[in-house]
Write a protein that binds this DNA or RNA. Structure first.
Length: 466
RNA sequence: GGCGCGGUAGCCAAGUGGUAAGGCAGAGGUCUGCAAAACCUUUAUUCGGGGGUUCGAUUCCCCCCCGCGCCUCCA
């Protein structure tokens, strides 16, 4: 079956095809840069990265835009507390975010766009909404009048008619005519950053940035809009209300939402002391690739229960795959391709692709890979894996890694170089020939101290960095 | 209360109207100077509970129990 995704809009799995059949226009909600992103954020971004890669593998061209929210209540408050401008305050976290992306091997979207660099676009969108009668002004702020947009609620499947005006406390501290309404433009307040505009001095509301930037770079109708599940309402619902009121066209064809990550079965929260950033985990000695593997291994629509046991299990599982890769690269295989091993490889490849086509079922895709690894390992043990089997196997592994991107660990700084390792291995081999096991073990220990693991195999010594 | 997601072996987790992938952990074994790596066997007569439909349900329907999320700015 062809590529398909679960669409929040229809609440069904639907075949996917970009509107022009060729280029996927995708917008994903990026971070609000008021702190380091946490592993829950990274789970969502990992999903977006897998999505990117799979779309590219499937032959589509990709125009992927990710926003960076760099003006927002919390940012303003924090920046003011620290006596910084919001740019000074956010730039450190934006840089940190990009570093985190790199460490987790996330590809950069075609465009990363900052909210503060698109104020005119947002003002223009709000003006259009105003012209259409979708807005009202109260106390210097501009609001979206939800009652003007009959489709409101179609994404989150929430019936807003039951929510009465004024039923809830106005946490925004701005006056609204209806509790359901949301702010498009916040009037200037003392001490806060603001922009002068035809709407008056002020700053944009959160939701308008995504609608305005998405439409600017991707057109009125996106193919895919993705983000965390908690953004479904109200953020994405509001984006739809804004964009569709402006353009009169559907805003996005497919809405994909990643489920949350839990920590030890609990919601991650600073108050629970289970709030982790990537930095926290790296300081704990966990490899970024292991973290990526763990985040990628649970299908995106399922809650991911993050535990340190799980992280250790991921490390072991990943090591198994890397051992296999090493065996494939260093093993001496001879003879023609064994047909059973070839079948196993082809079968795994088909199963892997089919699993990812099926709404990015990464768990099933991994299952196919591990099965392939076991079957071909057995074949190697039994001498039923010929030289002709190595290439297809290698290609499958490369294919896997072009999506998961976890097999090649980053070389550590100051590590012993290959030549030195090889020289010591040669000496050890000599020592073994003369049955000088004391020296042989000494060299093994020496290398182990430098993070090098030796394995004696029938084809010679195999070594790896750990 | 409304909307949504989920409850599958010790843990993580896939899955289908026809009788349970895969990973981790555990136990035993093969191999081995040692150490690894790898492989084999073993670990769910059963898929939260109870009804129903069916020749047959973990998979469809109904009810119940439990966990979690959203319901105004949290990925």
């Amino acid at each position: 079956m062809a590529l398909r995704f679960y669409n929040t809009l229809s609440q069904q799995v639907e075949p996917f095809e970009p509107q022009d059949g060729k280029t996927v226009r995708m917008y994903t909600c990026g971070p609000t840069v008021y702190h380091y992103v946490h592993i829950g954020n990274l789970r969502t971004f990992t999903f977006q990265d897998l999505l990117r890669r799979w779309l590219l593998y499937r032959g589509f061209e990709l125009q992927h835009v990710m926003n960076i929210t760099d003006v927002e209540d919390k940012i303003i408050r924090k920046a003011m507390e620290e006596g910084k401008t919001i740019q000074q305050y956010t730039s450190q976290y934006e840089t940190a975010f990009l570093e985190d992306m790199d460490r987790l091997r996330m590809q950069r979207p075609e465009r990363l766009v900052r909210a503060t660099e698109h104020i005119p676009e947002m003002v223009e969108a709000i003006e259009k909404l105003a012209a259409g009668g979708y807005t009202y002004t109260s106390d210097g702020s501009v609001y979206y009048r939800i009652s003007k947009f009959p489709d409101y609620g179609k994404l989150s499947h929430i019936d807003v008619s039951g929510q009465r005006a004024g039923a809830r406390v106005d946490v925004d501290e701005y006056d609204k005519a209806d509790a359901r309404d949301f702010v498009l433009w916040k009037g200037r307040r003392d001490g806060e950053p603001y922009w002068d505009s035809s709407l008056g001095a002020g700053r944009p509301g959160w939701h308008i940035e995504c609608s305005a930037m998405a439409m600017k770079y991707l057109g009125d109708t996106l193919d895919i809009h993705a983000g965390g599940i908690d953004l479904t309402f109200p953020h994405h619902e509001n984006e739809i209300a804004q964009a569709e009121a402006v353009s009169g066209k559907p805003f996005a064809r497919y809405w994909l939402h990643a489920e949350h990550l839990m920590v030890e079965s609990q919601k991650m929260a600073k108050s629970l002391g289970n709030f982790y950033t990537l930095r926290d985990l790296l300081e704990g000695g966990y490899e970024p690739e292991v973290i990526r593997y763990l985040l990628a291994s649970v299908p995106y629509r399922k809650k991911l229960n993050f535990t340190f046991d799980g992280l250790r299990a991921a490390a072991t599982a990943l090591e198994r795959l890397r051992n296999y890769k090493l065996r494939l690269e260093t093993g001496k295989f001879s003879g023609d391709a064994n047909s059973a091993a070839l079948d196993a490889t082809q079968k795994a490849r088909a199963a892997f692709d089919e699993a990812l086509d099926d709404d990015l079922n990464t768990a099933e895709a991994l299952g196919a890979i591990f099965e392939f690894v076991r079957e071909t390992n057995t074949a190697m043990d039994e001498g039923k894996f010929g030289a002709g089997n190595a290439k297809p196997a290698q290609e499958l592994l490369d294919h896997f890694d072009s999506i998961f991107d976890v097999l090649r660990p980053k070389q550590k700084e100051g590590a012993i170089c290959d030549a030195e390792v090889e020289a010591l291995i040669a000496e050890r081999t000599q020592a073994k020939k003369t049955r000088n096991f004391a020296r042989s073990d000494e060299i093994r220990g020496l290398l182990a101290g430098k993070g090098i693991v030796l394995e004696d195999t029938k084809d010679g010594v195999r070594w790896k960095r750990k």
